[in-house]
Amino acid sequence: MTPHGNPEVPASSATEINRSAEKVSPAVEPVETRNAWGLWEVFVRSSRGLSHVHAGSLHAPDAAMALRNARDLYTRRNEGVSIWVVPADAIAASDPDSKGSFFESPQGKDYRHATYYTKSEGVKHL
């Protein structure tokens, strides 16, 4: 791998992205035909100033119940000040099988890190 990536492959591996993937929550099926509550992913902000972090998942019939269940399930000990719930179907994920090519572009690009520049070692405030 050269430091500038493989010229045969677009740097972003943009071709790997599934552009037809659903970007919004699909409409909820009518209850009669649905045998189980939908799966929701739960994200919890532990305190102001921090990001929401994935805590786990749960089943709920709608967003309001998902939020309440998430509160009871993931914040029984003051773990959060804010919760997001997202229908699991609405999340588009990268394909684990394309791991290599999808994420290879930063590889060999050490110069993106401060540690690459060693000549300035010992110089103060740099």
Binding site: V28, P30, V31, P61, D62, M65
Partner: peptide
């Protein structure tokens, strides 16, 4: 309880659409 929650969710969904 499960049935009521599902029925409520369906009703809300119908209203929304």
């Amino acid at each position: 309880v499960r049935e009521a929650a599902a029925a409520y969710a369906a009703k809300q969904q119908a209203k929304q659409s």
